[in-house]
Write a protein that binds this DNA or RNA. Sequence first.
RNA 1: GCUGAGGUAGCCUAGUCCGGUAAGGCGCUGGCCUUGAAAGCCAGUGGCGCAAGCCUCGGGAGUUCAAAUCUCCCCCUCAGCGCCA
Length: 430
Amino acid sequence: MLDIERIRNDPEGVRQNLARRRNELYLKQFTELLAIDRDWRKAQQDASDLRRQRNAIAREFSEAKKAGKATDGLARQAEAIPAQLTELEAREAVFEARRRELLMALPNLLDDSVPYGKDDTENQVAREWGERREAPKDLPPHGEFLESHQMGDFERARKVSGAGFYYLEGPMVLLDMAVQRFAMDLLVRKGFTPVIPPYMLRRAPYEGVTDLADFENVMYRIEGEDLYLIATSEHPIAALFMGEILEEDRLPLRWAGISPCFRKEIGGHGVDQKGAFRVHQFHKIEQFVFCQPEDSPRIHEELLSNAEEFLQRLGLAYRVVNVCTGDLGVVAAKKYDIEGWFPRQKQYRELVSCSNCTDYQARRLGIRTGKQGKPGKGVPHTLNSTMVATPRTLVALVESFATEDGRIGIPEVLRPYLGGLHELPAPVAR
RNA sequence: GCUGAGGUAGCCUAGUCCGGUAAGGCGCUGGCCUUGAAAGCCAGUGGCGCAAGCCUCGGGAGUUCAAAUCUCCCCCUCAGCGCCA
């Protein structure tokens, strides 16, 4: 949610920023918001003028009564007020509701360093790291590879749950856990606090953390309950301090979330291939930070470099892209994606998304900053970044470290988590 | 799911039966005092508004000149019971 003060003080600056998103709707909504805000304040004024009259009469009434004087005259004076007030308040409520609707619909302001572009094809490559490996000639798609080695079952997952679900089996499960544990350990060493959040959220906190369109397109809802399966642990962690005041001296707060993530994504490209790349359910280790506004650009880079370090230590080649205006979501002011190199597909594909949401989420959630028991007027910034998402990252590992004879090398840093195992499929011990 | 108790300002609490416009404490800020600090004492300390003023007692509706207080509906939390990995 945008800061209404800022909108009132610098409407043209805000409009120009919104215009960079090249979405006519936002500009229309913004124009309407300016008008509605004025109408709302006027309606508020009218209603409070009438309340002042009412209160004055009520006070006189009270005093007259205490003094034992007659109150009939006062009662007659006040007779008409409640009905008038009801009308004025109804008017005020209409404006207020629309004003809130518009405020909730408008996206975050873009950081100046976000490049202009129409869609994800125009994201700006910031840098590349690592050797782009080549896949062995006969390497099958990872789905087939996993099925043929009894490390996954996508056919039966479709039978019982539908496309986009999977059974991961055997050593792949251990690899999945190893990758997560390695990522978590790395973050803990950097001072992040591990957190297992709720996997479902109520609507109210959820509206604070995400684009309202996600309720239609992304989130699964529990039937008959006010609960949604989380699409990422970013969401429950952001909502953690809803309505609270954060102690300034204790910022920044760094969290390392671990959770499954559930996504419908019918608004996206659908589930586009067999396997474990684009799925309705996955696991993610997430970085999340609450900080003072002046620190967020620096911490944004820090989160990015944590995710890069993780990929470097696995030996996975990647590139960092600065996500352009046309591909940036509603909530972020600036976003980097890290795209891993997938040797069999011969292309970079998204593994990490690293966003600075500035004060947008915090304001929607009613989170403020304050000092030693004093409620402050400050609003913290929030940032989030993938550390690792599985099984997608496992697909990158499979494609990157597959050998000619159909085995998969295990990066050295993961071996301690796998009892020293060097490659998959492991010799079966019975 | 059932029964009961609750939701009041940054935090804790009183007020609710019996309607009259949020009391007190903690914390915080300033002042007095002190070599300094603590203690003690005094004052200030929710939101909006240029201001007069208005709003704020979980949310909404109603009764009333007037609602934290009365009526109705809803939400949430806790405790006990039930169920349960």
